[in-house]
Amino acid sequence: MKVIVPLKLVPDLVEDLEVDGSGKALDKEDLKFKLNEFDDHALEEAIQLKENNGAEVVAIAIDGEGVDKLLFTALAKGADKSIKITGADPKDSHQLAKIFAEALKNEGFDLVLTGVQSVDDRDGQLGPILATYLEVPVVSVVSGLAVSGNVITLHKEYSGGFMAEYEVDSPAVLGIQAARQTPRYTPVSKIRQIQETATIESVDAGDAGVGSGSEVSKMAPPAKGKGAKMLGSAEELLAVLKEVGAL
């Protein structure tokens, strides 16, 4: 089974976010990027499939700052191949999905595991859009899957702790909420070692399409409500706990 994992860098929310001069986008100046945490789960689940069932795992990402390191890290974690798509600058999830879809049509796949969502997918999540372009079924919010032949059995999560079990025929796209175990950590030394020996394949981006058909008109931090009354000490906190009946 050939499992593809599209990877995406997103702004690290630990840093302060600022809006740029246009008032419609983040100021990229001081922005730090990291792998979308759900993509990390998708990659882990793919590597679990490889280790437990046998699978070929391919990580794929669109070229940009930090992407080589991202793709070498995927190899260090256990991916068999990493592909970098060059010459693309997607402006939204639709274009991102279109670029991945064009690359995957050439690459071939049985299963695509995407992160269920990312912090910036304003026009919808990558997985379902990608599945539509690839004309294969999609299930989102998946945690836990098993493969038997070309049938994937999976758990999809709902709210309130409910889950449902589905069977899906491959090829398919699954939006991964959580891998069966916490994504593995790879020491920097191992990534360096891989960098010495492995190579990242490069492919040219295909048509990115017209995008989502909607534009951002404004971006701003949320209007502050009344906000929290800030407390300065444990004594003050204690007084509040007594006041609200927690003690």
Binding site: L17, L26, D120, K218
Partner: peptide, 15 residues
């Protein structure tokens, strides 16, 4: 108005 970036930005779209 969409809440993005972990709730740190309100993003308005016209459609």
């Amino acid at each position: 108005t969409s809440q993005l970036y972990g709730g740190k930005m309100d993003v308005e779209s016209k459609v």
